[in-house]
Nucleic acid binder design. Structure first.
Length: 154
DNA sequence: GCCAACGTTGGC
DNA sequence: GCCAACGTTGGC
């Protein structure tokens, strides 16, 4: 099993929205590196740190699980979609999405500041300067440390 | 809302 | 293939 961190703006879709819905489609990824991670390395059952970005505070708000592996994202060739990409067509679909299901909300929200100050998390992608990837792999020992900080069992 | 850091685009 | 211009991300 692999571990991931996925960013969502809570004003758009928060951990509480996922708890309510139980499951969601992770559409709108428009970065090739993030897409390639989903396409090449993300599998059903992988665990995901659900991260609130562009939030006050930003940080890890809960855990999700991949429940459907990467498949084409139809919003890419839908002109009415916010995520429409003129370069994508039904012939060259370009972008992918996955489905994730709710696992648990963190009893203790783990702020970005807390992530930055814990020495166990040295080198974690999300705390690197300028790291904007919305889908990023997480080392198993980093994942375990974040779970502990969140007050969650392994 | 500001703006630094990045990624993408397109002219050449 | 370079690189300037532009758009986006996301912390603050």
């Amino acid at each position: 099993m692999r571990y991931w961190l996925m960013k969502s703006e809570p004003d758009v879709y928060s951990i509480d929205d996922l708890a309510r819905d139980g499951q969601t489609t992770w559409e709108g990824v428009r970065n090739y590196q993030a897409r390639n991670f989903m396409r090449d390395d993300m599998r059903v059952g992988d665990r995901v740190l659900f991260y609130h970005s562009n939030a006050d505070p930003a940080g890890v708000a809960g855990v999700a699980e991949v429940c459907e592996a990467a498949y084409p994202d139809p919003t890419a060739w839908d002109p009415a979609s916010h995520y429409f990409d003129p370069g994508a067509t039904p012939e060259n679909r370009r972008w992918l999405r996955v489905d994730v299901r709710f696992v648990i909300k963190a009893p203790c929200f783990v702020s970005l500041d807390a992530l930055k100050t814990d020495p166990r998390l040295e080198g974690m992608y999300v705390i690197r300067k300028g790291m904007r990837l919305s889908v990023q792999p997480v080392e198993p020992h980093h994942f375990a440390a974040v779970l502990e900080m969140a007050g969650l069992p392994l």
